[in-house]
């Protein structure tokens, strides 16, 4: 059990990693990564039951996580490294030729912790359902977690999967939606409004949790609540309010930072706002 303060310290270091990784290669997606630093830290350091030392892609006997919005790979890589899946020094190879840390997650170089490629949006929920069904076949009582952007919900495959999981009572699945209200072309309301997400998921017979994803205390509460609501006959969705770019004042709540890396000056400003808690890679 980590304390909230310990988790906050880890998340701050993760945010530093995200800024440094995207700045060093002048590419990557810092906005959503920063917004999801808290939930990813909570998942990997508090919520999920993991077998880090003996990692296997099959994930039998442990909780599994699938990042559906693969562009926020910086936060995934940082959290995996900080959790011990691979050396933190490897974060310096992000997006460079020959790296295991591809721009969007890949499995072909067997990076521990990445079980499935993602990047083309809308697919991770289906993959998570498959993994959850495998757990049921294998009589494994662990859970499957997935993370999605809210803009990603515009993909039709998501709703095929939402319908399937509700209809088939895939109740060992917890899907987290990063509701930051922003996407590349503007706000989700401007681009193609998602409407009432709670009502939509309820209509598909999902169990609902709402939480503030940039408040560590509420994030831990919400994820624990999701675990309690799991295995009750319905899949669980966590509608998580966050701000894109959270933790860096000039990036916060601005869709420009979806896929724009900070330049050297911006990175210095950002890092001045983020304490080095665990030591930079």
């Amino acid at each position: 059990m980590a304390t909230i303060t310990e988790l906050q310290d880890i998340a701050t270091q993760v945010r530093r990693d995200i800024i440094r990784m995207t700045n060093s290669v002048s590419s990557g997606h810092p906005g959503g990564s920063l917004g999801c630093a808290d939930v990813m830290t909570a998942l990997y350091f508090e919520i999920m039951d993991l077998n880090v030392e003996n990692y296997k892609r099959e994930g039998n006997g442990e909780d599994m996580f699938f990042l559906s919005n693969g562009h926020i790979s910086p936060v995934l890589y940082s959290v995996l490294a900080r959790r011990g899946y691979f050396p933190v020094q490897e974060l310096a190879t992000f997006r460079r030729l020959g790296t295991r840390l591809q721009g969007h997650p890949s499995v072909h170089d067997n990076l521990p912790g990445v079980r499935q490629a993602s990047g083309s949006l809308g697919q991770g929920l289906s993959v998570g359902i498959g993994a959850a069904l495998a757990k049921k076949y294998n009589s494994c009582d662990k859970l499957v977690f997935t993370l999605h952007g809210d803009g990603e919900l515009q993909e039709g495959q998501i709703w095929e999967a939402v319908m399937f999981a509700g209809a088939n009572h895939v109740d060992n699945l917890i899907s987290i939606i990063d509701v930051n209200g922003l996407q590349i072309d503007g706000s989700t309301d401007q681009v193609c409004s998602l409407g009432n997400l709670r009502a939509k998921f309820e209509a598909f017979d999902w169990s609902i949790v709402e939480m503030q994803g940039n408040d560590m205390q509420d994030t831990v509460r919400g994820l624990n609540q999701a675990k309690q609501q799991a295995k009750q006959g319905k899949p669980v969705v966590v509608l998580m309010q966050t701000q894109m770019g959270y933790g860096v004042d000039f990036m916060q709540n601005k869709n420009k930072w979806h896929g724009t890396p900070p330049n050297d000056e911006q990175a210095a400003t950002a890092l001045a706002q983020l304490k080095e808690t665990l030591g930079d890679y």
Partner: peptide, 11 residues
């Protein structure tokens, strides 16, 4: 997608 999730889990 479901087939892929099952397969990576050993099916």
């Amino acid at each position: 997608g479901i087939a892929a999730g099952l397969a990576l889990s050993g099916k």
